[in-house]
Design a protein around this nucleic acid. Sequence first.
DNA 1: ACACGCCTATGAAACTTTTATGAAGCCTCA
DNA 2: TGAGGCTTCATAAAAGTTTCATAGGCGTGT
Lengths: 231, 231
Amino acid sequence: MQKTDLLVVEDDPALARLICYNLEKQNYTVRHAGDGEEALEQVRQRQPDLILLDWMLPGISGIEVCRRLREQNRTASLPIIMLSARGEEADSIRGLDIGADDYLIKPFGMDTLFARVKAILRRAPPADKTLRFEDLVMDRVGHKVERNGRLLSLGPTEYRLLEFLMLHPAKVFSREELLKHAWERSSCVELRTVDVHIRRLRQTLNEATEPDLIRTVRARGYALDKPLEQD
Amino acid sequence: MQKTDLLVVEDDPALARLICYNLEKQNYTVRHAGDGEEALEQVRQRQPDLILLDWMLPGISGIEVCRRLREQNRTASLPIIMLSARGEEADSIRGLDIGADDYLIKPFGMDTLFARVKAILRRAPPADKTLRFEDLVMDRVGHKVERNGRLLSLGPTEYRLLEFLMLHPAKVFSREELLKHAWERSSCVELRTVDVHIRRLRQTLNEATEPDLIRTVRARGYALDKPLEQD
DNA sequence: ACACGCCTATGAAACTTTTATGAAGCCTCA
DNA sequence: TGAGGCTTCATAAAAGTTTCATAGGCGTGT
């Protein structure tokens, strides 16, 4: 099993270092972001199992980061522990409302921190990052996909599209749904664009004799599906 | 068992996000529609197990959406919880009259919401999305139909027609009724067209030795029915 | 039983809708 | 600035729908 992957978002370098150092000693893999922008970028690059998120951040605020993560399907249930200075307690309710899973008031002891982290991870154990479907394997940590042991090279969009489909095998999605879930948010793109990406995905996925894993459902959309014999 | 599928219809993005996020954390599959038009479209695409329906909506109002769902046979008993702002209490009676199953006054806490959702679902447990009749199985999530394990390939209209028949087995429908329920609404098509689709459905459904599952009732219409022995 | 009059089944043609595909233009990132 | 990747667009190709003409059944009254 992979080590649990944490992301610490904290702009105060001293505190950040302290937290990171201690968590690493607890045998977590720890990454750090100094502001909201960077945090989102880090998450995009590799999804952590838990985020420690400071409330006050330069640029995009912690709460905003939280909200943005929540509205993205793939990060919607990513555990978040908010950190904030005393006196902002009133915000705690808002923080929890907006989707934080826990809330720590600074200053806090490292033991408290460890306890909360463990508690949250116990409640939502880090999911296996590897997706499988038929002879397809997606390694979400290494950001690699292979079929039958053959490494596939996918563009970012194709990757997200396949990832979403692999999260919901044998389920049909309309183009709207696919755009909503597999594209960066707020992108207003032609529905037909999905077709093109499906084609590229198919080209990459299906070697010569291999059956097509993507099923077209006319007037509905597409599904990742076991290719059945049909007469 | 598939996760329970909810549809949140709410035009205020902030509130919508809040509701969706919290419900997702309760392990529901949540979809969202920003107006009445979109809501009806979503329902058409995939029928949810419960709808949270805002009263005030741009375009088609919540109450109108509710009414339209009620008059469609297939959605007539779909559970609906109406949401409305304080001060519209008077409407609550009207709302319940029109067929809502419950009524929430904004602002409401998430716990209240969860409780109501659970209560309604307990009262009307989400139907299995898989329809069965004799050796026919229709997977409405994956949009697949098989008979005797043999995958059938149906066109959109045949699919809807069969779906409707499977929802009401052993019941005879006139061509008018079939057109009304299995065709996109507001389509004005010859009655005789139904015959053609019934034929195509039969062709696909009935392999060589298999008995015909569709019974013709002269001067009345058709029914999906257990085949009678006859030699 | 027979014949006539409604219905229904069926094949095929005309049409409509939807999807697949190739290629061009853009944008971004290195 | 070049390469890779994303979108759009035009067009070809499928797939599905509707209509129509005709053949075939069934029921009923005599």
